[in-house]
Simulated assay, not measured.
Amino acid sequence: MSLQVVTANRLGDGLVVFLTAEGGWSEDINQSRVADGKEAGDALLAEASAPELDTVIVGPYLIEVEQQDGGLVPTKYREVLRTKGPSVRQDLGYQAG
């Protein structure tokens, strides 16, 4: 089975966030609550799609991740970019500091 986490964008600043074990949102993918399997992923997405969260985040969806070197890493390149920020301007995004 594949491991999945929920990601979305925070409405206040547009940053990529991940659903945490406590039910909050973090910019750090390693604080994500991980679902293992389809049913667990569907339940996680349903929680993240609750109507009361419409004022906090937008567009929640599941992404596949892998455990690597003690951390979570997205399996798709698009999601890797979303977790790191823009790839053409190193002075912008998360890598700027």
Rank of each mutant, 00 (worst) to 15 (best):
S2Y: 01
S2A: 13
S2R: 09
L3Y: 14
Q4S: 15
Q4V: 00
Q4G: 02
Q4W: 01
V5N: 08
V5G: 07
V6I: 07
V6T: 01
T7V: 10
T7R: 15
A8N: 08
A8L: 10
N9D: 08
R10W: 11
R10Q: 14
L11G: 02
L11R: 15
L11E: 04
G12L: 13
D13N: 15
D13I: 09
D13V: 07
D13H: 11
G14H: 11
G14R: 12
G14D: 10
G14M: 11
L15M: 10
L15Y: 13
V16N: 13
V16W: 12
V17P: 13
F18S: 01
F18W: 12
F18H: 15
L19R: 15
L19I: 04
L19H: 11
L19S: 06
T20W: 09
A21V: 10
A21R: 14
G23L: 11
G23S: 12
G24N: 13
W25I: 03
S26K: 04
D28M: 02
D28C: 02
D28S: 12
D28A: 06
D28N: 15
I29F: 01
I29G: 01
I29N: 05
N30W: 04
N30G: 10
N30A: 08
S32W: 01
A35Y: 01
A35L: 00
A35K: 05
D36R: 14
G37T: 05
K38E: 14
K38I: 08
K38Q: 13
E39A: 14
A40Q: 14
A40T: 07
A40G: 06
A40K: 12
G41Q: 02
D42L: 04
A43C: 00
A43E: 09
A43H: 04
L44Y: 03
L44T: 05
L44Q: 10
L44E: 06
L44H: 04
L45K: 02
L45W: 01
L45D: 03
L45E: 08
A46G: 00
A46Y: 01
A46E: 15
E47A: 11
E47Q: 14
E47I: 00
A48H: 00
A48F: 04
S49K: 11
S49N: 12
S49V: 03
A50R: 15
E52I: 02
E52A: 04
L53C: 06
D54G: 03
D54F: 09
V56S: 09
V56T: 15
I57N: 08
I57D: 09
I57Y: 08
I57R: 14
I57A: 09
V58G: 12
V58H: 10
G59V: 02
G59C: 08
P60D: 08
P60V: 01
P60R: 07
P60H: 03
P60A: 05
Y61K: 12
Y61S: 11
Y61D: 07
Y61I: 00
L62A: 07
L62N: 04
E64P: 06
E64G: 13
E66K: 10
Q67L: 10
Q68M: 13
Q68I: 08
Q68T: 06
Q68P: 00
Q68S: 14
D69N: 14
G70S: 02
G70A: 03
G70P: 02
G70C: 02
G71I: 05
G71D: 02
